[in-house]
Simulated scan of single mutants.
Amino acid sequence: MKYQRPPYTFVGLVELKVTDLQRSLAFYQNIIGFKVLEQSERKVLLTADGKTPLLSIEQPENVTSKEPRRTGLYHFALLLPTREDLGKVLYHLVQNNVRIGASDHAVSEALYLDDPDGNGIEIYRDRPDTEWEWMNGEVKMVTEPMDGQGVLAAANGEKWTGLPEGTVMGHIHMHVSDLTKTEEYYTKGLGFDVVCRYGGMALFISTGGYHHHIGLNTWNGVGAPAPSDNSAGIKLFTLVLPNEDSLQTTVGNLKQIGAYVQDEDGVIVTKDPSDNKIRLVVA
């Protein structure tokens, strides 16, 4: 989990809009294993360790179903401490007849599923970074079948009891409308490094040599429109910067490239070229 804390820039709280708060809450507690940190009539803040908010689910007034072929969330990704933890999650999901996908990405092993509104979720564990392969500044990532039996065996028959305390928001993967403008925004504006180009339609970026803090793709179509304000889906995500100096530098860089950046009630908010909203905070 060393890449999800300072001195790196990493993804913090992810905020989702849902069409039925109680249905979503039941899913995120019983299937994903979150605990409630704070709850109001229209919004719930969820945590793994009882202290750190990782996910917010909110039911806005007049919310509509998630719109297809738009920019926005592809998936948010919960990073578990160990392969044993992933094995417990896999067994739990299978026992509950949850429809899942599973992949081996060389750097990680990952499970994929959707919440009741079609918001994508990845639950994964990293292989040790000493096993990642780098060539010419790019990390080798693949999509191959996961060794499900091996992952299950790693759990040693131990019971799933929800998300382990060490769970963090490992990365986020977004649909965008244009990779060229997007690359400029995230690298020159936000200070990320490109670590993998995937088939001309996806880009993986990170700080500090992680395999990716953010994935970006045009799989919903080049020029895909942004979703309506009241559509279910992502509201915004938070990027945690290491210190105040890096925040001020980042704000300056964003302004220099002409990106949207505003102070909203003392909080810096920016939008990427596809209208994906990001809150910038200091660790």
Rank of each mutant, 00 (worst) to 15 (best):
residue 93 L to P: 03
residue 165 E to P: 04
residue 227 P to H: 13
residue 159 K to F: 13
residue 49 D to T: 09
residue 213 H to F: 11
residue 191 G to R: 00
residue 156 N to M: 12
residue 112 Y to H: 08
residue 166 G to L: 06
residue 92 H to M: 07
residue 71 T to M: 06
residue 269 V to Y: 05
residue 268 I to P: 00
residue 62 N to P: 11
residue 133 E to H: 14
residue 163 L to H: 03
residue 57 I to F: 01
residue 59 Q to V: 05
residue 280 L to V: 11
residue 266 G to Y: 08
residue 2 K to M: 14
residue 185 Y to L: 03
residue 279 R to H: 14
residue 226 A to I: 09
residue 17 K to T: 08
residue 139 V to K: 00
residue 115 D to A: 06
residue 260 Y to H: 12
residue 264 E to W: 11
residue 229 D to R: 13
residue 153 A to F: 13
residue 4 Q to A: 14
residue 283 A to Q: 12
residue 61 E to P: 15
residue 242 P to Y: 03
residue 188 K to G: 02
residue 246 S to Q: 14
residue 260 Y to T: 08
residue 246 S to V: 12
residue 114 D to P: 05
residue 272 D to K: 02
residue 150 G to W: 10
residue 172 I to W: 11
residue 234 I to M: 15
residue 125 R to S: 09
residue 178 D to L: 03
residue 67 E to K: 08
residue 203 L to S: 04
residue 45 L to K: 09
residue 267 V to W: 03
residue 248 Q to H: 07
residue 168 V to N: 01
residue 114 D to I: 08
residue 197 R to N: 12
residue 210 Y to K: 02
residue 211 H to C: 06
residue 81 P to C: 01
residue 197 R to T: 11
residue 131 E to Q: 14
residue 133 E to V: 15
residue 132 W to P: 00
residue 152 L to Y: 07
residue 27 F to T: 04
residue 29 Q to A: 07
residue 52 T to Q: 08
residue 105 H to V: 12
residue 162 G to P: 03
residue 51 K to H: 14
residue 150 G to C: 06
residue 231 S to N: 08
residue 45 L to R: 12
residue 267 V to T: 15
residue 154 A to D: 10
residue 6 P to G: 04
residue 126 D to P: 01
residue 5 R to G: 15
residue 80 L to C: 09
residue 90 L to K: 02
residue 132 W to T: 06
residue 81 P to T: 03
residue 124 Y to C: 09
residue 42 R to N: 14
residue 250 T to A: 07
residue 167 T to F: 10
residue 97 N to F: 09
residue 43 K to C: 06
residue 147 D to I: 10
residue 187 T to N: 02
residue 194 V to A: 01
residue 29 Q to R: 12
residue 167 T to R: 00
residue 173 H to F: 11
residue 173 H to C: 03
residue 20 D to Q: 08
residue 80 L to K: 02
residue 18 V to R: 02
residue 46 L to C: 08
residue 23 R to I: 08
residue 122 E to Y: 05
residue 240 V to M: 14
residue 235 K to N: 14
residue 123 I to K: 00
residue 51 K to Q: 15
residue 190 L to R: 00
residue 231 S to C: 10
residue 28 Y to C: 04
residue 75 H to G: 04
residue 64 T to P: 02
residue 215 G to M: 03
residue 11 V to G: 00
residue 63 V to S: 04
residue 115 D to F: 06
residue 87 G to A: 05
residue 203 L to R: 06
residue 82 T to D: 04
residue 112 Y to F: 14
residue 255 K to Q: 13
residue 140 K to A: 14
residue 159 K to R: 15
residue 243 N to I: 09
residue 152 L to S: 08
residue 235 K to P: 01
residue 141 M to C: 11
residue 267 V to N: 10
residue 103 S to M: 11
residue 219 W to F: 10
residue 52 T to W: 13
residue 186 Y to D: 02
residue 149 Q to D: 11
residue 148 G to Q: 10
residue 155 A to I: 07
residue 194 V to M: 03
residue 84 E to A: 13
residue 96 N to Q: 10
residue 79 L to T: 05
residue 251 V to G: 03
residue 190 L to H: 01
residue 192 F to W: 04
residue 86 L to R: 00
residue 3 Y to L: 12
residue 201 M to S: 14
residue 120 G to R: 04
residue 238 T to H: 10
residue 13 L to E: 11
residue 256 Q to M: 12
residue 35 K to Y: 07
residue 86 L to E: 00
residue 281 V to W: 12
residue 116 P to E: 03
